[in-house]
Design a protein around this nucleic acid. Structure first.
Lengths: 169, 169
DNA sequence: GATGTGACTTGCATAATGAAAGCCAAAAGA
DNA sequence: TCTTTTGGCTTTCATTATGCAAGTCACATC
């Protein structure tokens, strides 16, 4: 009774969850962006059990988001550093961070984001690289790519048919 | 041996994972943005077992991302619709989708995003709402908010100290 | 009366999680 | 020399969570 795998889904969001669909993986990446590199740094900052951490680090290196590298021989010491694929996950973390701060924070915030040069607060939003428009469910729709299967075409069509009436509570 | 809870973390990204830190929850939201509303629609499009779906829907409604509402009495029929909190999760999904398409897709894409008016392709990126700059690990740092605890201050300081040398493989 | 719909439960077998403890190699301290 | 510390993990095992299969329940329709 294996956990279902999303690797073969055509949807890129579903595939992403195969690499990154559990909390520890995401928090490990978060810490990597905060500058954590060594096993014990992750261990302490996450408060995770060492076996779990070892498993997740193995998973993330296997998925190509982190790379394990020797930073000292004798005694052999390793560190985990972001690959370019891992570094490119930054926008997702920013979006998640912003959502959490908007909906889950207490009255006063504990963490903010800032520009290191001006010290002004940063507020992450998701926009379209081509037009600069802010993306909303209203102005962004699924479209089939060149490799779309029949099933994918069905999904795209369904979502377009329902687009007008995505109900809000 | 409960699963560790992140609800009390100060980090908004960690808190977010409490609501949304498992794959099914994220895929359910994805489908909600595609217009799915009824139990059986989610069931079919996700290929998930009905007990799992019921659990996750209960969780998401409990977290305030979806609302269960009666759309027909006699016989009683329910649908699950996005709340404003759930709708606001859209940017995170877009960022995840874009990351998946950049790194996990085959040579040819199966899914794309488009502008419903112009049909031009959309490419989600994360920017700063104030300056319009694209966010990168280099131009975005953690900062303490008014409610920052001593521990949070430590984290912020650590990340700033390490900022220059976030190693890349 | 039989079949169909929509929305779920119940009952397990199988994985994954997580706490505690242990291990190993090298270096540093007594 | 002997002991302790540091860094980076394994191993074991109880507890949860996942997920397939099957069943339920309240109507409605044929």
């Amino acid at each position: 009774m294996r956990r279902t795998s999303f690797a073969a889904w055509e949807c890129p969001a579903a595939r992403a969850l195969e690499s990154v669909g559990d909390w520890w993986s995401i928090l490990i990446l978060r810490d990597a962006f905060r500058g954590a590199r060594r096993f014990d740094e992750f261990l302490e900052s996450l408060g995770v059990a060492p076996n779990m951490l070892a498993r997740r680090l193995k998973h993330l290196t296997g998925e190509g988001l982190l790379e394990k590298r020797l930073y000292a021989e004798r005694p052999a010491r390793y560190e985990y550093v972001l690959t370019s694929k891992g570094r490119d996950f930054f926008p997702v973390l920013m979006a998640l961070f912003a959502w959490g701060n908007r909906h889950l924070a207490d009255d006063e915030r504990a963490f903010l984001l800032g520009d290191p040069l001006t010290s002004l607060e940063r507020e992450p939003i998701v926009t379209d690289a081509h037009t600069g428009e802010r993306l909303t469910p209203g102005n962004t729709v699924l479209a089939p790519g060149p490799a779309a299967s029949a099933e994918t075409l069905r999904v795209v069509e369904f979502s377009r048919a329902r687009r007008a009436q995505i109900a809000i509570a």
